[in-house]
Design a protein around this nucleic acid. Structure first.
Lengths: 337, 337
DNA sequence: ATGAAAGCGCTAACAG
DNA sequence: CTGTTAGCGCTTTCAT
């Protein structure tokens, strides 16, 4: 006859204390003698006891869990989520663990699977949403639902008080100054700049700022069309090179676009980095193996995870909204002379 | 004065039914009139009521949650988890959602953070573990802990009854036959084959089988050393090319090794794919942007996720252990003449 | 520093 | 088909 679940009462009996003492001892309450605590811990270990999270959560009202939603492109499966968002997801889970939180993760891309009310359902204490800005339906649904509890957002195509972002402007300045240092004079910007792409707009701002500061011509942003950024980058580069007075370097609004650009450049026979420079943004792992390897601006992922998570773990402290970035030298810009 | 949480009693009162009817109606019990159900649903919506998962879980004993642990390399952060495991993680979360399960995910790489007893703690109904086989400490810890509840495993360096794997042998046959079709005669195998690498051993088996079948010479597996597979692949290829009678094509045990090999090959000036063929295994996204793009064997990720998850959702049905694979033609093998 | 008692909000067994 | 009732196992007052 199999005994039912070991409860804190069983441990209490074995340790010769009350059930509430067991609870306190195992929860690390300071008002428990070290001696009592170790007796309780020994009894718990002997019986193979584990606090039942279901009961603890019901009673305390907290869940110790963070809901993390990764928004993908409409109609696509999680396999095709960008490496950037995977890295950010990983860092966010790690940051949550640092705060003693678990991570409930959901990949959502299509209407019908959108769900944000994890807090209302008692599944989590807060919500982190990250993903591609191109999925308007998802972001609109998030806006319309107005989930309760603390929320932190990365990648939304709108400005509100909940976002966390990379230092996009500063990163763009780094990128462009690197190209300038390599001797490039006509530097183009690859990326759509409009209200739907606030991150790209910030990067364009930094691009402009750096060029103006150095007295170099500022190009119009060359819009990339389509949700497939790589393909978009490929096509945009073709358009750019076909125009009169083409650039001799480009700063791409992100690595996916830059990777597409690199491909197209390779096909036209442009010599990168000897004659043509390329810098991306995001720190994509795929850029390590591209030809040539992609020089890029990488946000500090660990800090990004912490910034997102701290809005939920520490809702009362002033939130960090900007995450520092750094230049990763790989091989798509020639060495500084 | 803020009212406390809306409960099923409030909904019951508003709908003029008993509390248990509310519970049944919202849980989709078939023994509820459609008329009653819609009245309850209307009341619930009007009050903004959501079933409290904490209470439901305590009472029912189930959690509707799957714990997914991603094992990384010792001392590394989640940012450096392989793209393969990210894709598998995504597919597993998606498969869990298909079964109506939530996914609690944890990245673990170092002793001190290992935790497998999610079921004992009432956090999940089962456990999926995936990750790199090189982290012996983690896998040993898993073995030693023997967590309760259903468990499914991908990537462990040992054989037991819980693993799920790709059709490694069949995939290797596909890879090697593709190289043979391209006219290659001396095909090498890049990867360590020993008890710690059961997946590589299976791939070597398929490699051997295909070559024997076609009457071609079977090479010894060329061990790759170090946990960084890319670097290992780079070095192994150098060794292979330095040996007498070097191969004119290689099948790498996985894409990371193949990517390293491609790099080293490029540096030595070998012309891939015109004179030298390379095929990898895993379907890594980074292989899309390598030079040349990497031809590879890709497991069906969606099926992999389902196979893992079904061990937890449907513990009574005969589990699927093998996941089908397919050849992804990219560009590292020349066209069939 | 510890014990006694209450009750979190729900599901499920049992009636009717 | 619906109502009544009894807990699930814990955390947290309130005592002592």
């Amino acid at each position: 006859m199999r005994r039912s679940r070991v409860t804190s009462f069983d441990v209490a009996e074995a340790a010769g204390v009350s059930q509430s003492t067991v609870s306190r001892a195992l929860a690390g309450s300071p008002s428990i003698t070290e001696e009592t605590r170790s007796r309780v811990e020994a009894a718990a270990a002997a019986l193979g006891y584990h606090v039942d999270a279901r009961a603890a959560r019901l009673r305390s009202g907290r869940t110790g869990t963070m809901a993390i939603v990764v928004v993908g492109r409409a109609g696509s499966d999680p396999t095709r989520v960008s490496g950037f968002h995977y890295a950010l997801l990983g860092s966010t889970c790690a940051a949550a663990a640092e705060c003693g939180y678990q991570s409930l993760v959901a990949f959502q891309s299509d209407p019908g699977e959108f769900a944000w009310n994890y807090v209302a359902q008692g599944q989590a204490d807060g919500l982190v949403v990250m993903g591609t800005s191109v999925n308007r339906a998802a972001w609109n649904d998030l806006l319309a639902t107005a989930p309760q509890g603390p929320v932190a957002v990365w990648g939304a195509p709108f400005d509100d008080e909940r976002w966390v972002r990379a230092e996009n402007r500063e990163g763009a300045v780094l990128a462009v100054e690197r190209l300038i240092a390599a001797g490039h004079k006509r530097i183009g910007f690859l990326g759509t700049v409009d209200a739907e792409h606030p991150q790209f707009a910030e990067r364009y701002e930094g691009y402009r700022e750096a060029l103006v500061r150095h007295g170099l011509p500022v190009g119009e942003p060359l819009a990339v069309v389509g949700d497939d950024r790589v393909a978009a980058g490929r096509e945009a580069v073709a358009a750019m090179l076909g125009a009169p007075d083409p650039p001799d370097a480009i700063f791409a609004a992100n690595d996916a676009i830059a990777l597409g650009a690199l491909e197209a450049l390779g096909r036209t026979g442009a010599r990168v980095p000897e004659e043509f420079g390329v810098v991306g943004f995001d720190g994509l792992a795929a850029g390590v193996h591209s030809h040539p390897p992609l020089t890029t601006i990488e946000p500090d992922f660990a800090e990004a995870g912490r910034a997102l998570v701290s809005r939920i773990c520490y809702p009362d402290v002033e939130p960090t909204r900007r995450v520092p970035v750094r230049l990763i030298e790989r091989g798509s810009v020639r060495p500084v002379r």
